[in-house]
Computed example of a mutant assay.
Amino acid sequence: MNFIWDEIGSCAGGAHFTLELKGSAARVCLMDADNFQAYRDGEEYEFHGGFWESSPADLVVPYDGYWFLVIDSNPGTIRYWLSAPSD
């Protein structure tokens, strides 16, 4: 499984993001800093999001924190556009 990631940074709980995917279906994961580190270390982690076969993927930040976006996909090219958060 290939993955790409993006550092979103500090966000307030309740902020909404819209993710546009281009390429193949993907698992979209919104993770706080601790879970992102666990993901990279191959340890157990939790995420918010799910599997999307088509756009748009709507994400809601569950609580105030520092956030990372991870997109897992099958081999191939994935492009994405993440909208600015809205309250």
Rank of each mutant, 00 (worst) to 15 (best):
1 M>T: 13
2 N>R: 14
2 N>H: 11
2 N>K: 14
4 I>C: 04
5 W>M: 03
5 W>D: 10
7 E>N: 09
8 I>T: 07
8 I>C: 04
9 G>S: 04
9 G>D: 04
9 G>A: 05
10 S>G: 00
12 A>C: 09
12 A>Y: 07
13 G>F: 11
17 F>W: 11
19 L>N: 02
21 L>Q: 07
21 L>V: 08
21 L>W: 03
22 K>T: 15
23 G>W: 08
24 S>H: 12
25 A>M: 05
25 A>C: 06
26 A>E: 03
28 V>L: 01
29 C>N: 06
29 C>D: 02
31 M>C: 04
32 D>S: 07
34 D>K: 11
35 N>Q: 07
35 N>Y: 00
35 N>S: 11
35 N>P: 05
39 Y>G: 06
41 D>Y: 06
42 G>A: 07
42 G>P: 10
42 G>L: 05
44 E>N: 10
45 Y>L: 02
46 E>S: 15
49 G>I: 12
51 F>A: 11
53 E>S: 13
53 E>G: 15
53 E>C: 05
54 S>I: 07
55 S>K: 10
57 A>P: 06
58 D>K: 14
58 D>S: 13
60 V>P: 08
60 V>R: 15
60 V>Y: 06
61 V>G: 10
64 D>L: 11
64 D>M: 10
65 G>M: 09
66 Y>G: 03
67 W>N: 08
68 F>G: 00
68 F>L: 07
69 L>A: 03
69 L>F: 03
70 V>S: 02
70 V>T: 05
72 D>R: 10
72 D>H: 13
73 S>Q: 12
73 S>L: 08
74 N>P: 11
74 N>C: 07
79 R>A: 14
80 Y>N: 03
80 Y>K: 05
80 Y>D: 01
83 S>D: 10
83 S>H: 07
85 P>Q: 07
86 S>F: 00
86 S>G: 12
